[in-house]
Computed example of a mutant assay.
Amino acid sequence: MLMRLARVEEAGALSELALRSKAHWGYDELFLKACRDELTLLPEDVSSRRTSVVEIDGRIAGFYTLDGQPPEGELGNLWIDPEYLQRGIGRSLWQHAMGVARELGFATILIDAEPNAEAFYLEMGATTVGTTPSPSIPGRVLPRMRFDLR
């Protein structure tokens, strides 16, 4: 397993990975179409959003984005290709992201979580602090979570 910074030319592949990961939860095509813009990374997003990937045997197995400026940031994405679920990839990505966040001086990381991933973030030590409206689906809310790095 290799953790590295994402490359700008990988933006399309990362966007497709995020959609595959979202689809894993059983959402229909209409729902996924509504989420496409939200889950799309543009080449300029890759560097500006501090995007890191995990590679296994030369294939991208997952990625995260770490957004914002210290002291408070946001885990904007954390997606795992469904082919690589249940292999510790999520935990590795999380630990890497929180290590980078600490190095950059973040005190708090906020997460607007995929509802099906809330239990994962709770297991990682985050707490649910409320809800936030979905940017893609009117009337839908996402768990708003917080992780304190200190």
Rank of each mutant, 00 (worst) to 15 (best):
Met1Ala: 15
Met1Pro: 12
Leu2Met: 14
Met3His: 09
Met3Thr: 07
Met3Arg: 04
Arg4Tyr: 02
Ala6Ser: 10
Ala6Met: 06
Arg7Glu: 15
Val8Gly: 11
Glu9Asp: 15
Glu9Val: 00
Glu10Arg: 00
Ala11Leu: 10
Ala13Gly: 14
Ala13Phe: 14
Ser15Trp: 02
Ser15Glu: 06
Ser15Asn: 00
Glu16Cys: 05
Glu16Ile: 04
Glu16Gln: 01
Leu17Lys: 01
Ala18Phe: 02
Arg20Val: 01
His24Glu: 05
Tyr27Cys: 02
Tyr27Leu: 04
Leu30Phe: 12
Phe31Ala: 05
Leu32Cys: 10
Lys33Val: 02
Arg36Ala: 14
Thr40Tyr: 08
Thr40Pro: 02
Leu41Thr: 07
Pro43Glu: 12
Glu44Asn: 07
Ser47Val: 15
Arg49Asp: 11
Arg49Gln: 11
Thr51Leu: 10
Thr51Ser: 11
Ser52Phe: 09
Val53Glu: 01
Glu55His: 06
Asp57Glu: 15
Asp57Asn: 14
Arg59Trp: 11
Arg59Ala: 12
Ala61Lys: 00
Ala61Pro: 00
Asp67Pro: 05
Gly68Tyr: 08
Gln69Ala: 15
Glu72Ile: 13
Gly73Ile: 07
Glu74Arg: 14
Glu74Gly: 12
Asn77Val: 06
Asn77Thr: 05
Ile80Tyr: 05
Asp81Phe: 09
Pro82Met: 00
Pro82Asp: 01
Leu85His: 05
Gly88Met: 03
Gly88Asn: 05
Ser92Thr: 09
Ser92Met: 09
Leu93Met: 10
Gln95His: 14
Gln95Asp: 14
His96Asn: 05
His96Thr: 06
His96Pro: 08
Ala97Glu: 09
Leu104Thr: 09
Gly105Asn: 12
Ala107Cys: 13
Ala107Gln: 15
Ile109Thr: 03
Leu110Ser: 10
Leu110Asn: 09
Ile111Val: 00
Asp112Gly: 15
Asp112Trp: 13
Ala113Tyr: 04
Glu114Gly: 04
Pro115Val: 04
Asn116Glu: 11
Ala117Lys: 07
Glu118Ala: 02
Ala119Thr: 07
Tyr121Gln: 04
Leu122Glu: 02
Leu122Tyr: 04
Met124Ala: 01
Thr132Tyr: 07
Pro133Lys: 08
Ser134Thr: 06
Ser134Pro: 03
Pro135Phe: 08
Ser136Lys: 04
Ile137Met: 13
Ile137Gly: 06
Gly139Gln: 12
Leu142Asn: 06
Pro143Asn: 10
Arg144Asp: 00
Arg144Cys: 03
Phe147Gln: 03
Phe147Glu: 00
Asp148Met: 12
Leu149Glu: 07
Leu149Ser: 01
